[in-house]
């Protein structure tokens, strides 16, 4: 999905228009994997008779690009995909038709035409925000909230981040990749962290680090994680300025 085919193809056709779709994933459908969601959308688009553009060749496929895979079991209010259409469509009408053809667990929240030169949504992803809940089955110390606030309030937050390959871990300062934090309730906190392709901070990793700091032992399936939003960085200098993908 990260390949450049999507963009270069689009350049070749002056008629084609690019759209971004925002959707939520909730309820029972949180047990559908990212791969299944991709196949699901191919079918939703067909059922909705949306004029999506197909690739050339003997077995053409729809030109879709998903922003950022959501782990199985997570819910989300901020999922994105880009699609190329063969012609300009009415955004409201497309939204209505997609929703009519989708199960209620996956709800289309917005459809927006993109600028011709816009980068595809996957390339835009810079940060994502989450609500992380420690499940009831896990006993928390009385001062858990305070400790979580302490953790995120540190001058630097040294954590061992597991490497993608060959196991092992690398010491990083989480503070540099943390853009926002607040407590939501006794067991739930909100974070906004970097999700760029190089330093992708996983929410379960952050939650695990919090537990370690608070001396809480996370057993099997300890967190309930909800993705709130995905952001791009629109700053043109070294600062970070976040804006939701739609």
């Amino acid at each position: 999905m990260r390949s450049g085919i999507f963009r270069c193809w689009y350049m070749q056709d002056s008629q084609a228009v690019k759209y971004r779709v925002k959707f939520s994933k909730k309820g029972a459908l949180r047990y559908i994997s990212h791969l299944d969601v991709m196949r699901y959308f191919q079918k939703v688009i067909r059922r909705a008779e949306i004029p999506v553009k197909y690739s050339e060749g003997f077995s053409p496929h729809q030109l879709l690009s998903f922003a950022y895979p959501l782990s199985l079991g997570y819910t989300s209010d901020g999922e994105y995909l880009d699609m190329v259409m063969t012609e300009r469509v009415n955004e409201e009408e497309a939204l209505r038709r997609l929703n009519e053809c989708s199960e209620s667990g996956i709800k289309i929240l917005a459809v927006k035409e993109l600028d011709e030169k816009a980068r595809n949504c996957m390339a835009c992803v810079f940060a994502a925000s989450y609500n992380i809940t420690i499940r009831e089955k896990i006993t928390l110390p009385d001062d858990f909230c305070k400790k979580v606030i302490d953790f995120f309030g540190q001058e630097t937050i040294p954590v061992n981040k597991p490497k993608k390959k060959n196991g092992g871990s690398v010491l990083i300062d989480l503070k540099q990749y943390l853009y926002d934090f607040r407590m939501i309730d006794d067991r739930t906190f909100y974070i906004c962290v970097n999700s760029g392709s190089e330093t992708n901070i996983r929410p379960d990793f952050v939650a695990g680090s919090v537990c370690e700091y608070c001396n809480v032992v996370p057993n099997e399936n300890p967190f309930y994680i909800h993705r709130v939003e995905i952001y791009e960085n629109i700053s043109d200098n070294e600062n970070v300025e976040l804006r939701a993908l739609i």
Partner: peptide
Amino acid sequence: MSVEKPARYIGN
């Protein structure tokens, strides 16, 4: 969350 392919059991 502990079984392979939970989508087998959720209907919908």
